[in-house]
């Protein structure tokens, strides 16, 4: 499995966001699936996160304008869900499951290992911007506990040793 690094936020993401032709085409493709424009909000936010790296205030206003919503409404939706980044993420976001099955099957040990190895706690990034540690709720893979999602990919049945190999590999690929 080759986990792709997240897009590194650039200047355009924080200020004046314009959608180019590719983006407009993709938005049009989303819009035709729903009878209302508003229903396209979640998918369009996903497109933006993929393209710009995170949902900056500039992205929020651009999306609001494109879909005919107020920025306040869009921001309300963004803040309700946990997966839209409202600040620039690291290149690899380590989303550790902290729910019951994982926590009784080695999840706690993984977190201890990660915090010691990377020197960061939940919500923090390594100084070089490679890794970010996030505690998440049940990822729906409890039979293979403990589980960590890194960006879009699931890593299951982990041990500190296996996790080391994964992290070394990702770091080497930068």
């Amino acid at each position: 499995m080759t986990t792709r690094p997240l897009v590194v936020a650039t200047q355009e993401t924080t200020s004046d966001v314009k959608f180019d032709k590719t983006m407009e085409d993709r938005i049009a493709d989303v819009l035709r699936r729903y009878p209302t424009t508003r229903a396209a909000l979640l998918p369009v936010l996903w497109l933006c996160q993929e393209r710009f790296g995170w949902i900056s205030p500039g992205v929020i206003s651009a999306v609001a304008e494109r879909l005919g919503e107020s920025a306040a409404f869009v921001e309300g939706v963004v803040s309700f869900y946990t997966m839209y980044y409202t600040s620039p993420p690291a290149r690899y976001v380590l989303q550790v499951c902290t729910t019951l099955s994982c926590s009784v099957c080695g999840g706690r040990e993984l977190v201890d290992h990660l915090t010691a190895k990377l020197g960061i706690g939940f919500g923090e990034k390594t100084p070089d911007g490679s890794f970010q540690l996030v505690g998440v709720q049940c990822l729906g893979a409890c039979g293979n506990a403990p589980v960590i999602q890194i960006n879009d990919d699931y890593y299951e049945d982990l041990t500190p040793k296996k996790l080391d190999a994964v992290l070394d590999d990702l770091k080497g690929r930068r």
Binding site: T99, L100, S101, Q137, C138, G140, A141, C142, G143, N144
Partner: peptide, 11 residues
């Protein structure tokens, strides 16, 4: 949406 802790069948 499969989110109930302990559930991983739909996947």
């Amino acid at each position: 949406d499969e989110s109930e802790p302990g559930t991983f069948k739909d996947r």
